[in-house]
Design a protein around this nucleic acid. Structure first.
Lengths: 210, 210
DNA sequence: GTCTATAGACCGATAGAC
DNA sequence: GTCTATCGGTCTATAGAC
């Protein structure tokens, strides 16, 4: 039995070679994630990914059989990060605070250029995503958790009970690709924290004065 | 001098051939607008546009020298429609009502599948748009008009004075590509009017209860 | 010496341009 | 209707691990 220098469970008991493979896979997904965030799916080329990772294109295809699978893997990664964050929230906190924490986290990921952006109309991509067990499980788990919080917050009068819960959920998800963040960032007039606060304010308090 | 069957000012005093050209140009732009709305810029092919209009691809290039110019023309068209709508609003009305009317109009265009969608990260497209006098003039005029209304509404306590006016402007513009509209439409649980009302509510009143 | 993984040339199709 | 560039995807010779 080998000695582990890192106590990360999933990599335990794996051969050196297998761990190298996982490490490379992670490097690939990180590159794809970054490129998807900065150029989007269509503008990202597979050659570019290979060059960015520093490996040959054929090696890429050893890990991921298609460009869609690459994008899918990146989406699964952010979804897992989101799941981790949502799970880290103590169940005891008040629902609105939890919802706001998740929204803030989402905006920070977007603002830091780590949110992959996919064309919403691409059907092959949608199919790949929908057939990914990991992605869909993550999506369902997060939707369920948020859904419970949303309904609780509506019941307690924190969130507007006149809105369908699903509309609130969609509005929260939409923060992951809110163009206002990019616009404000491009303007250069506001710090990252200020931008997050502004979008949080317009999202939860609306544009009208209170 | 010829008799005009349509009293549209810009086509007056034009030869038959010139009017045919303008008519075809309009047909092209309408097709591009529709295709951009339903598939986006990258997924739209020039062949497709030609087929949709019912003309040869070569004829397309007589009118528009590149795919970017096609998209640009469609954007100019919606911008002009928006200008027309904004100008049609009486200056006397209260600022918030005006702003809401424009936002509602935008959502209705989006909902009816007439809002062209361009990838925000495409630089060649950005360049084409920015170098289009008509597009930029329209953008500036609308921004100025909305800007005046926004500041008036903030001064009168209708809109939140704590928000930078530019952030409010961006938030309004962002309604033109709000994915919540598409999500809700796909769900099929709400009428078009209900969807517009919902998004208007989340935009102006926020998610929190008032 | 064998075997795996890699590098990089290569192919075919698509789509923009004329 | 043709040309050409680009890009997703594949193939093969080779380098290095064991």
């Amino acid at each position: 039995m080998e000695t582990l220098d890192t106590p990360v469970a999933p990599t335990a008991r794996l051969s050196f070679k297998a761990r190298m493979l996982l490490a490379r896979e992670d490097a690939i997904i990180r590159s794809v994630n970054r490129l998807l965030a900065e150029k989007g799916f269509d503008a990202m080329t597979v050659d570019e990914v290979a060059a960015d990772v520093g490996i040959a294109k054929a090696s890429l295809y050893k890990h991921f059989p298609s460009k869609e699978d690459l994008a899918c893997a990146a989406m699964v990664r952010v979804m897992k990060r989101a799941q981790d964050f949502v799970r880290s929230i103590p169940a005891s906190g008040d629902p609105l605070a939890n919802i706001q924490a998740v929204t803030r986290w989402t905006l920070q990921v977007l603002l830091s250029g780590e949110m992959p952006s996919l064309p919403s109309q691409n059907s092959s991509l949608r199919a790949a995503l929908m057939s990914s067990r990991e992605y869909m499980d993550g999506l369902v788990e997060i939707s369920d958790t948020l859904g419970v919080w949303i309904e609780a917050a509506q019941a307690s009068g924190q969130l507007n009970p006149g809105l369908p819960a699903i509309a609130i959920l969609y509005t929260l998800f939409a923060r992951a690709c809110d163009p206002v963040v990019e616009f404000l960032k491009m303007g250069g007039q506001h710090s990252d924290e200020a931008i997050v606060d502004l979008v949080m304010s317009t999202c939860f308090d609306g544009l009208r004065a209170r």
